[in-house]
Design a protein around this nucleic acid. Structure first.
Length: 875
RNA sequence: GGGCGGUUAGCUCAGCUGGUAGAGCAUAUCGUUUACACCGAUAGGGUCGGAGGUUCGAACCCUUCACCGCCCACCA
């Protein structure tokens, strides 16, 4: 017997264990079956599941479970990412709390600490994925720093190096002054902030004149090596070639002409600081200017600036430079402006500086060309399609990828140097030493960008570089499910690496899902404190409720809003499902082995079979089309509006007073329909459906629901049955509506007379009299020739339904109600007439539209006639 | 500066190839009839952001404007 209420917590825990023990999530157990594979976007191993993950994982799980039920050999590949910077930062912070430091520990000890932290916290997010019900092949879980994946990383690096695509270069990078590592362009976020534009006078050598430059970063003037003006700028033509005296340093710097200078901006003269500005670096190269580095790695000023500024932070230096310029009378003015300043994309802090360092770069251009072509050829498709443009625009403007990081946590670069600094790139130290002819070598200290290993995920997790059977069977994967924020970071790079190393795109479809916002539509962030924790939601409402809510919200728009009130309605739906299953159980609706839905003879059963078949088609088509919201909606509508509201209600009088054969057929059909519902909902709500699947069967089922067969239904006589049941439903609805408007007490039973009815309608009434009487609360229901006095009336098809209410009826009210309906109908007719008398419309509209309009007009006409007839009879 | 989304019922959103709008939540009224008050019945509620245009016909196509949001860019 099912409990009175559904308690998700107990059930989820138990069912999880059952699935795990059954091996249902394992790939490769269905040898002949068509493979279907998805790789999970690996979350940060030490992270926590956030609502975005919950959405992402839910959608993947829906696909995995759906395809598994359709008989495919499903591999959903799970795993986690080492997340270099984020993880290293956390561990450094923890060390700081214990008065220890990374540098103090040294590389080896520090890495031990990180591994320890990974071991401690690394299970958490995977545990959370389990709680969500993720049906990944957990036995195959991978970590980007696993031995096998590390081998893939090394091999890829070495190959790319040999191909000349990886090289070392000394140029400006985005330097994180806090972590003291390079970061890639993608990790920089330009944020608008309020600042000032300072106008500074640079004296011209041997003259009393000045040239005024405008800058938002006055402190960098200490590293200026030129002033640039536009070649065509008449104001400054005479000054080109002269020297300016750089204030505070006394250095002489040339005034040069360069297109970079924009006469419209600032003063039209721009200070050039090649060591600390990307544009100026280029200008410097063009004009062979010296490059002065004025910063230490931590962002403080170094010894190449005049003594008073040495050791100052950037902020302090700015203050002092401005004060000193002011004192020297060289600060002309400052105007407040808002301008974009590079921030660290994760922490939103101003820790980045353009900084001259030597780094490893990957020339991605040739890989990008192939990756673009693959999408153009349709080998990989984005869904929704408009994300293709985002992919293209970035790929078309791709720049060399800075892949080295000055961190310790990550894949150490497989490069060794001899005493002369000569490079030996090899997969192992032994191989490098061999290359070097036995010389003593030291390894490159740096590690690779985290995304370098993530880029290999679709094949490294399948065993590459070994030629495994999994690689053969599951690559390329079918669909990648991810958010738009990592199209560049991850999707694009997987495309490039996949094509380059596997010769094939890594996935056929890229499903870009919504970004999750809070209920007010704000981006969730820890600082704002509006983060919705999916685990809290699961605790409160159950995993099924959360999943269903997420699926329902997963439309094609860019964002979705999620919060407790929405999940609550998902919970209510789960409860509904639970309760309707209890109803089935209480009425002895037990699955009948070998039940043939096409063989039922009761009209209502034929109807529910047809409706079920329709729902199966809708849900199936929607999931296939990756339209999760449509799929969830179709299932919801069927369960709620068709099964619970009508079928179950209609079966009540049958169970109570139907014939033995009708009752037994209806029991079997109800059980069957409930089973189909459990199947349809399983991808969305796996726990409760699996629980009900077992609990509603008197003897153990042939299989768990998770591996049950996805329904495909044929039904017969559907159209006639549907027409009949829809007529019955409309009749009941009509009565209920009149009762409500006439304020007939809910407890009061009333008689019904069907007048002007066709033989078919009369027969329908007779056939379903029990059902109609119960659901419409009638004392009697019969066909009759005339409308009794004192009747409320409504039109049903060709017939008029009369409800003789006697004293209860309020004639004024009834008249008003009917007149309102009549008015509405007449307006409709007028609209049809206007249309149909429009020659243009008649001439140009397609025949079927015309016919349809004529039919609708005729219907409305007939309805109007009956309504006015009814009104006439009231008098 | 370039690009992309969005603007539909009080709120959150559907509306796939053009035939004058749907759901959930919320609201109102009624309600304990064999599951379910995490419920049921009934009802109200929209000039589909504005303005033009194409069309017999536009929420849907085109132009333009407005507002909101996102992404990219070498914005001193």
């Amino acid at each position: 017997m099912l409990d009175k209420t559904f308690s998700p917590a107990d059930v989820e825990k138990r069912i999880s264990a059952v699935w795990e023990a059954s091996g249902a999530f394992r790939c490769g157990t269905r040898p002949g079956a068509e493979p279907f594979s998805i790789v999970i976007p690996p979350p940060n191993v030490t992270g926590r599941l956030h609502i975005g993950h919950a959405l992402n994982n839910t959608l993947q799980d829906i696909l995995a479970r759906f395809e598994r039920m359709r008989g495919k050999d499903v591999l959903w590949q799970p795993g986690t990412d080492h997340a270099g910077i984020a993880t290293q930062l956390i561990v450094e912070r923890q060390l700081a709390e214990r008065q220890m430091s990374r540098l103090g520990l040294g590389r080896e000890k520090f890495l031990e600490e990180v591994w320890k932290w990974k071991a401690e916290s690394g299970g958490a997010i995977v545990e959370q994925q389990h709680r969500l019900g993720a049906s990944a092949d957990w036995g195959r879980e991978r970590f980007t720093m696993d031995e096998g994946l590390s081998r893939a990383v090394t091999k890829v690096f070495v190959e790319l190096y040999k191909q000349g695509l990886i090289y070392k270069d000394k140029r400006l990078v985005n330097w994180d002054t806090r972590l003291q590592t390079a970061v890639s362009d993608l990790e920089v976020e330009n944020l608008e902030i309020r600042g000032h534009l300072w106008h500074i006078r640079y004296p011209i050598e041997d003259s009393g004149e000045f040239i005024t430059v405008a800058t938002t970063r006055p402190e960098t003037m200490l590293g200026d090596t030129a002033v640039a003006v536009h070649p065509d700028d008449e104001r400054y033509k005479a000054l080109v070639g002269k020297m300016a005296v750089l204030p505070l340093t006394g250095r002489l710097i040339p005034i040069i002409a360069d297109d970079h200078s924009d006469p419209e901006k600032g003063t039209g003269a721009v200070k050039i600081t090649p060591g600390h500005d990307f544009n100026d670096f280029e200008v410097g190269k063009r004009h062979k200017l010296p490059l002065i580095n004025i910063l230490n790695k931590d962002g403080t000023f170094n010894n190449d600036v005049p003594a008073p500024y040495r050791g100052l932070s950037r902020e302090a230096a700015r203050k002092k430079v401005l004060a000193d310029l002011e004192a020297a009378g060289l600060l002309e003015k400052s105007e407040p402006i808002t301008h974009a300043v590079p921030h660290d994309e994760k922490t939103k802090t101003v820790v980045l500086e353009p900084f001259l360092t030597e780094q490893w770069y990957l020339n991605v251009q040739p890989l990008a060309d192939k990756a673009i072509a693959a999408v153009e050829k349709g080998e990989t498709r984005f869904f929704p399609e408009n994300w293709t443009n985002v992919y293209y625009s970035w790929m078309h403007n791709i720049r060399p990828w800075c892949i080295s990081r000055q961190l310790w946590w990550g894949h150490q670069i497989p490069v060794w140097y001899d005493a002369d600094g000569k490079v030996y790139c090899a997969e192992t130290e032994e191989a490098a030493v061999k290359l070097a002819g036995g010389k003593k070598l030291t390894r490159d200290e740096d590690v690779l960008d985290t995304w370098f290993s993530s880029a290999l995920w679709p094949f490294s997790t399948l065993g590459w570089p070994d030629q495994t059977t999994e690689l053969d069977r599951y690559y390329p994967t079918n669909v990648l499910v991810t958010g738009f924020d990592i199209i560049f970071f991850w999707v694009a790079r997987m495309m490039m690496m996949g094509i380059h190393f596997m010769g094939k795109v890594p996935f056929e479809t890229v499903l870009i899902h919504n970004r999750v916002l809070d209920e007010q539509g704000a981006k969730m962030s820890k600082t704002k404190g509006n983060v919705v924790d999916p685990i809290t939601l699961i605790d409160e409402f159950g995993a099924d409720a959360l999943r269903f809510t997420l699926a329902l919200a997963a439309g094609q728009s860019r964002d979705m809003r999620i919060g407790p009130t929405r999940v609550e309605s998902g919970r209510n739906f789960a409860t509904k499902l639970w309760n309707t299953s209890r109803f089935c159980e209480m009425n002895g609706c037990v699955t009948v082995p070998g039940f043939d839905p096409a063989g039922v003879s009761e009209t209502v059963n034929q109807w529910i079979v047809a409706e079920t078949a329709g729902a199966v088609l809708d849900v199936t088509a929607a999931i296939e089309a990756l339209r999760f919201n449509d799929a969830a909606n179709a299932a919801y509508h069927f369960v709620y509006d068709i099964f619970c509201d009508w079928y179950v209600e209609i079966t009540k009088p049958i169970f109570q007073s139907g014939s033995e054969s009708a009752r037994s057929e209806t029991r079997a059909t109800t059980a069957w329909a409930r089973d189909q519902i459990l199947k349809l909902l399983h991808p969305f709500m796996p726990f409760i459906t699996e629980e009900l699947w077992a609990a509603t069967a008197p003897t153990p089922r042939d299989s768990l629901l998770v591996v049950a067969e996805w329904p495909s239904i044929r039904s017969q006589g559907a159209q006639a049955a549907s027409a009949e049941m829809n007529w019955v439903i409309d009749l009941i609805k009509g009565v209920r509506s009149v009762r409500a408007e006439m304020n007939v007490p809910a407890g009061a039973k009333i008689p019904l007379v069907l007048t002007g009815a066709s033989a078919e309608s009369a027969a329908r009434l007779a056939r379903h009299i029990d059902v109609i009487s119960t659901l419409a609360r009638l004392t009697s229901a019969e066909s009759g020739p005339a409308i009794p006095k004192g009747s409320a009336q409504f039109v049903l098809g060709e017939a008029v339904v009369a409800l003789p209410l006697g004293d209860v009826i309020d004639f004024a009210k009834e008249r008003a109600r009917l007149e309102k309906d009549l008015k509405k109908t007449q307006d409709e007719i007028a609209r049809f007439d206007a249309k149909l008398s429009n020659e243009q419309f008649v001439a140009k509209a397609p025949e079927e539209v015309l016919t349809e309009q004529r039919e609708k007009r005729a219907e409305a006409q007939a309805l109007a006639a009956r309504l006015s007839d009814a009104i006439g009879r009231l008098a």
